[in-house]
């Protein structure tokens, strides 16, 4: 009798959890995004060196048109590769678990994630347009962190914690201008890999 009641309660909890949170998020998506981000940061560093800009000595050359174009192209490539691979890995995990991907929870998750991201992205573009390259990395980290905190309601709570870390890192980066690339690599590279591995182990 009591076992049956316990099973009932467990079933209720599981159904509530499963229907209100996106639980198929694959930790490996984070690891993949992190590795791509680190590779991107390295590539950015080489682009700067090739243009004879010593990143840690003199930041001023970064604003030259040719360099900005190359870095922008690189950023777009990194973004597409990281998001694409991330989505592919999560979709494959969802399929393996036998769940549907496109549910009302998925929609809520994506809206919660992308509304702050799009506004943040446009804000960053405006900052870039005005030549404020030095605050790009801190801005990206803070907006990304806020987007994750917002989206965390609809998936594992670890995502919310990752969001706090990203936003916090962004604020620190804002206080130490000139080290944007380092903080960017830490936030989008290292943090993604660490959280990805944590979540991969926890929710396999």
């Amino acid at each position: 009798m009591s076992q049956e009641l316990k099973d009932d309660l467990q079933h209720i909890r599981k159904m509530m959890e499963q229907s209100s949170r996106f639980i198929s998020l694959n930790g490996l998506s984070g690891v993949a995004a992190g590795i791509i981000a680190l590779a991107g940061a390295l590539a950015a560093y080489y682009i700067l060196q090739k243009n004879s800009i010593d990143y840690f000595q003199d930041y001023s050359g970064v604003g030259r048109t040719g360099v900005v174009t190359q870095l922008t192209l690189l950023a777009v490539t990194v973004l597409i590769a990281a998001v694409g691979l991330g989505i592919a890995l999560t979709v494959s995990k969802t399929k393996k678990q036998g769940h549907k991907i496109w549910t009302s929870t998925t929609k809520k998750l994506l809206i919660a994630l992308f509304v702050p991201l799009v506004f943040g992205g446009l804000f960053c573009l405006a900052a870039m347009y005005h030549g404020h390259f030095i605050i790009m990395a801190p801005l990206m980290l803070v907006f990304y962190g806020l987007a994750l905190i917002n989206a965390g309601r609809y998936t594992f709570s670890d995502i919310q914690n990752l969001g706090y870390c990203e936003a916090f890192l962004g604020v620190i980066a804002m206080f130490i201008p000139g080290y944007g690339l380092v903080f960017w690599a830490l936030g989008f590279g290292v943090l993604h890999i660490v959280y990805g591995l944590l979540m991969y182990k926890k929710y396999r």
Partner: peptide, 18 residues
């Protein structure tokens, strides 16, 4: 029935397939 109610108390509208 427990399952149906559990899903509906934490969500707004849910369709049959979901």
């Amino acid at each position: 029935r427990l399952g149906i109610m559990s899903v509906l108390v934490v969500n707004d509208w849910i369709d049959f397939l979901e």
